[in-house]
Design a protein around this nucleic acid. Structure first.
Lengths: 336, 336
DNA sequence: ACCGTTGATGATATCGATAACAATCGCTGT
DNA sequence: ACAGCGATTGTTATCGATATCATCAACGGT
């Protein structure tokens, strides 16, 4: 544990001052190229590893952005994080990732822990948070970006879309091709606020078409998995067999529902139609392919990165970036 | 941006010294309970947020563990990270996550960046790394855990299994139930070293049964997706139609292969059998269910956490923890 | 009443880098 | 040869917390 090699040691070995070593370790600064080479060689020989803790304290720059998502194991959020990472990488910003398990209280703890590390900006998922979370974020003095939602009263910046409105698009589409008895499979709890918003959108859309909303199936606690979808579909088929179409809160549950139908020998979409949400890879690979909505997960991350870089460069008014999810017709619903 | 509230300010407001504030913010230390309450109230009123950068520099403790995985968007690794996080949380250790995109050079950069932040320990995926990565890790002076592999000459600690040996188990199983003309669908490149090891295991196992290995299908660059699997299966069916069974490098590609068969109206396992790897959720949900191998992803993470907590508490010899993947027979292969 | 002990709090130096400013070097033009 | 200027390097103070040691009050046993 003799991690006692400091810049001072490198400086001595290279015959320069610590300040010169410090400059050599940063890209921009002016150090003669053979001095830098000598320093780097000395550092390498000594096994020196730069200490960014000390650098951060003095410079008051940590060069990372905190990103909080509900779950690691979700391709949509992973894509968003990928878009963010790539977008920020060019400016030398790293992502520090945390996940909440769809728990508002966990989000609060995580936000506080993140802020203690003094990120340059913070990205959160969704537009609903605990009061204390909102207070912490407002007071943080750094850019805050809410994603995957388009709240009316954002904390600061927003990059996302309305989950409710987007679900209405799906309902409109299904009604447009002739489905009437439409069910919704989603989470029981509101821990997944985006899921809850999709259910609200479903209810509103059905009402606007004058259709009954007597086919809401609770699938359990988030995250709603494939298995949740399969189980919910089983209950739906047993309880309300005349259902014509089912909208699922995500492609994962939609695929589970599809598999349950196949297990029972039902024809999809002949006997029952299925739609999902998220444009997960499986939607395009399974047979038949899933009718779904592409929320443009990666673009959300890329845009969020642009917002962050923009306001870090030149602070300005809160930005509101609306993403346009696209409906992707698939083989699990009829097309006309 | 007046994030200028420091402990000093809280101390003044609470009428105590900074040292007492510092103690109040830590769980263990001795501060009279009403003094602590007064301090906490003052901190809250002022909107003070603890600065862990400064704390880390002085105390030389960062209380986080660096974890490097190939890809965020992979349920197996997400599970491992979940197991790690949960296991470390009790000791107040946080996970700092990085991902390499299956790129050895990216791993090297990431390892260096992580070490600059002075983690308490570091977890990497796989047992093959660049020379410089190995040198950095060996010299880091902190516990290093390699996971998802069981290398002969580990850097320090290991928690994992042999990908080659595990694939042999699958081959043995398929040969045992009568399959002979067995193909393997995997990545072209060795960027995914675990995938490459599985291919090696396949070759060795086939040879040990005296079977020809003339059915290797390259699916592309990692990460091997469902679509890769579907495309590879299409080529396999077109080129080598008498194939009896296919082992895929993961359940994702296996599912893609399955979907391709269903698209062509082939019966699985009647016309052709399919096996995967990873025990992803889809393996148990799709119809028919996939024959796969459960690598016990979460347990890998949990065990790694135990190793870390153990050696941080009492340094000792490198530990080698073998995980026992289990074969899970599914509906995509016959059982006898 | 004395001394030792425990519990609570304070004063000071310090972690390892960088900001800010100072000093020097090397070259150009005249 | 020398002033002038940019490029390069050095000196000193400092970021915001904690380690360490010191101090002081309260208390109990003899």
């Amino acid at each position: 544990m003799q991690r006692s090699i400091r810049m001072k040691d490198v400086a001595r070995a290279a015959g320069v001052s610590v300040m010169t070593v410090s400059r050599a370790f940063r890209a921009d600064s002016s150090v003669k190229s053979n001095t830098r080479a000598r320093i780097m060689k000395a550092a390498d020989d000594l096994g020196y590893v730069f200490d960014s803790t000390a650098a951060s304290l003095r410079s008051q720059r940590t060069d990372f952005v905190a990103v909080i998502i509900p779950s690691l194991n979700n391709a949509n959020f992973a894509e968003t994080v990928g878009g963010l990472s790539d977008g920020l990488a060019e400016s030398g910003l790293q992502v520090l990732l945390g996940y909440t398990g769809y728990d508002i209280a966990a989000e609060e703890r995580l936000v506080e822990q993140m802020l203690r590390r003094r990120p340059e900006a913070i990205v959160v998922t969704g537009g609903r948070h605990s009061d204390r979370t909102i207070r912490l974020l407002r007071a943080a003095g750094i850019p805050v970006v809410e994603t995957w939602d388009l709240p009316d009263d954002p904390i600061d910046h927003v990059v996302g879309f309305s989950n409710a409105a987007t679900t209405q698009v799906m309902v409109d589409h299904l009604v447009g091709v002739g489905y009437r008895r439409i069910a919704f499979i989603g989470g029981d709890r509101d821990g997944d606020t985006r899921g809850a918003d999709r259910r609200r959108g479903f209810l509103a859309a059905m009402a606007s078409h004058g259709l009954p909303v007597d086919r809401l199936v609770g699938a359990g606690d988030p995250p709603i998995s494939m298995q949740h979808g399969a189980d919910a579909m089983a209950r739906l088929l047993d309880g309300l067999p005349e259902t014509e179409a089912v909208i699922c809160v995500s492609d994962l549950s939609a695929f589970g529902a599809l598999a349950e139908c196949q297990r029972r020998g039902l024809d999809v979409p002949g006997d029952i139609a299925i739609a999902g949400f998220g444009a997960y890879e499986i939607a395009g690979v399974c047979h038949p392919t899933l009718t779904t909505i592409d929320p443009q997960s990666r673009r959300i991350g890329a845009r969020a990165a642009e917002v962050i870089l923009g306001v870090l460069d030149a602070p300005g008014a809160p930005r509101r970036i609306a993403i346009d999810p696209r409906l992707i017709p698939g083989g699990t619903t009829r097309n006309a």
